[in-house]
């Protein structure tokens, strides 16, 4: 299977391990990722909150680049990049006036009907959990994981059209396919504080703290994410959250692709597990996964 790949800025810097593990497990499953040539930043919160036309145009340029590659299906591991690209595709498809204006600014036609999938969605709907389970050589036995989806993988539901907006289960099923146990918990799709991490860190400590506390109360030993922003907030701010709440969490926050890679038999080194601030190694050791 061939699919266009939109990694986004984070996967080149803070979330490089997400990129590494994504490429590895895709290769393992026979998925050929074709990186969009010369892709640009999605603009994230900054663009859509200050300049709507710019936000749509940034997505439109990436869609036009896909057209040049003769690709009609694209996946992004980053929840924000995915959400922005899909929102742009949706708006351009449903608003003829906006499309004309964006094409005039871009000086290029924007293709219609591009299928934008989050990486999780691609694995679940295009590959299938059964196939993924068949590739497991080292089951994640005895691991109690909290699947954390965050906001943008499933919302807004009329655009994402994937899983339940507030009680999603796809990542849980996938992790169970890898042999792990998942916990039922309240904060699967609550917000971590997202882009406030620099400007209003108090909000991240508040919202992120609630997520970590809920995971702890549900008995999870680690959190599993599919978004670089969620990972950054829950992992790098975990120390500050602990100080703030006076509770020690020590909960590793891993990308679901890292766990897929581990279950497929890859070493923690090539999956970039050493790059996480809250080390998952003590946990992996007790489960005999090292």
């Amino acid at each position: 299977m061939e699919v266009a790949y939109y990694p986004g800025c984070s996967l080149h810097s803070a979330a490089r391990e997400y990129d590494m593990s994504t490429r590895l497990v895709c290769r393992h499953l026979g998925i050929s990722l074709k990186e969009i040539k010369d892709w640009n930043c999605c603009g994230a919160t900054a663009a859509h909150s200050l300049d709507h036309l710019l936000a749509v145009s940034l997505g439109a340029r990436n869609l036009a680049l896909l057209d040049g590659m003769k690709m009609t299906r694209v996946t992004s591991p980053c929840a924000n990049c995915y959400s922005r690209l899909k929102a742009a595709a949706h708006e351009l498809q449903h608003d003829e006036i906006l499309k004309t204006e964006v094409e005039r600014i871009l000086e290029a036609p924007v293709p219609c009907g591009v299928e934008v999938l989050s990486l999780l969605e691609m694995f679940v709907t295009q590959v299938g959990i059964d196939t993924i389970a068949e590739n497991v050589s080292k089951p994640l036995k005895g691991m109690k994981l909290a699947a954390y989806y965050g906001c943008l993988l499933t919302r807004p539901s009329r655009i994402s059209g994937f899983d339940d907006p507030e009680q999603p289960v796809s990542m849980d099923r996938l992790l169970e396919g890898l042999g792990a146990e998942t916990v039922d918990w309240s904060h699967k799709a609550e917000c971590c504080g997202a882009g406030f991490t620099a400007a209003e860190v108090g909000i991240v400590l508040d919202l992120g703290g609630q997520v970590l506390e809920a995971a702890r109360q549900a008995g999870a030993e680690a959190l599993v994410v599919a978004c670089p922003m969620c990972q950054l907030n829950l992992d790098t701010r975990q120390g500050a959250i602990e100080a703030n709440r006076g509770t020690r969490y020590d909960l590793p926050v891993m990308y679901f692709t890292q766990l897929m890679g581990l279950a497929f038999g890859y070493s923690p080194r090539v999956l970039g597990l050493k790059r996480l601030l809250t080390s998952p190694f003590p946990l992996l050791k007790t489960k005999g996964l090292l």
Partner: peptide, 11 residues
């Protein structure tokens, strides 16, 4: 400036 864009409201 406090809206975090989580889309819980619209859903």
């Amino acid at each position: 400036w406090l809206c975090v864009g989580c889309h819980l409201c619209v859903d």
